[in-house]
Amino acid sequence: MNRVGTFAAAASGLVLLTACQPAATSSAQAQADTDPHVVAATDIAAGRYIVLVGGCNDCHTPAYAQTGGAQPPESEWLKGSIEGFTGPWGTSYAKNLRLTVAGMTEDQWVETLATGTGLPPMPWPSVKAMSDADKRAVYRYIKSLPGDAGEVAPAALPPGVAPSGPSVKMG
């Protein structure tokens, strides 16, 4: 075999070996594929499920708590609440998540949920523990919600300042 033939045979072998190797993936992608996450027909369906079982509506949907858990129309979900949560920290209000996601990219949402802090009753440790795939699914679900986005929820009040509207006394 001459030099050209030897080179061609070696190159063919190399191509065959390369084809048998698994595709290279980034460590971030490999981690995302192995992290526990909700699997559903679509990301939006997964996000909806997470919102339901995660109790997001309990605080972030107007008057949800007063209904005893009866499901309001989905067009009203996650618009925030004027009902405050009062405790040693003052009074906090659940944000309008529709307006929140409208003002940020999906990556910003994931970063916010990964590093966020805030007042009770927001369960930040649980939110931070969510996989990035689930955080993205929730973002996509919120972006898909029908109806108007609603109004901005009231700002938190410091300790000692009484809320002017309804509030739930905690701790």
Rank of each mutant, 00 (worst) to 15 (best):
A11D: 00
R136Q: 07
T25F: 10
T100D: 02
P159E: 02
A28D: 11
T34M: 12
Q108D: 13
H37C: 01
A149I: 15
G150S: 04
L97T: 00
A153W: 06
P123G: 05
V110P: 05
A149Y: 09
A28E: 14
A11N: 05
E74M: 13
E76N: 14
A9K: 13
S12A: 14
L157C: 12
L119S: 09
T117Q: 15
Q29A: 12
T34F: 09
M122C: 01
A9N: 05
M1G: 15
G13A: 04
T61K: 03
G87Q: 09
V53H: 07
F85M: 09
Q71W: 06
F7C: 07
A70E: 02
V101P: 02
A30V: 05
A129T: 05
L145N: 01
L157D: 13
P22N: 07
D134R: 12
Y139N: 14
P125M: 11
Q108H: 15
A155V: 00
K135N: 08
G118S: 11
I44A: 11
G147L: 08
A41S: 12
L99Y: 01
P158A: 05
L157S: 13
L113C: 11
P120E: 07
N57D: 09
G147K: 14
V38L: 04
G87W: 04
C59P: 02
A156Q: 04
A30S: 10
G171S: 15
P146I: 06
A41N: 09
P166Y: 06
P22Q: 08
S26G: 04
P120R: 08
G5M: 15
A162F: 00
P72D: 03
R48F: 06
V101D: 03
Q21P: 00
P158K: 01
G54T: 07
E151Y: 02
S144E: 00
T100G: 01
L14T: 11
D33C: 03
S92R: 05
N96D: 05
A114K: 15
S167Q: 15
M104H: 09
A41F: 04
W109I: 09
Q108G: 14
G69M: 08
T105S: 13
N2G: 15
Q21K: 06
Y93S: 08
P121I: 00
L157W: 09
V110T: 14
Y141D: 04
A40L: 06
T61Y: 02
Y64I: 14
L14D: 08
K95A: 14
G171T: 15
S12H: 09
G5V: 03
C20D: 10
I82E: 09
D107A: 15
E111W: 08
E83S: 07
A41Q: 11
G13C: 07
K79H: 13
A149Q: 14
S167R: 13
A137E: 01
D148F: 13
G13L: 10
W124T: 03
M122R: 04
G160P: 12
T67W: 01
M1L: 14
G87N: 11
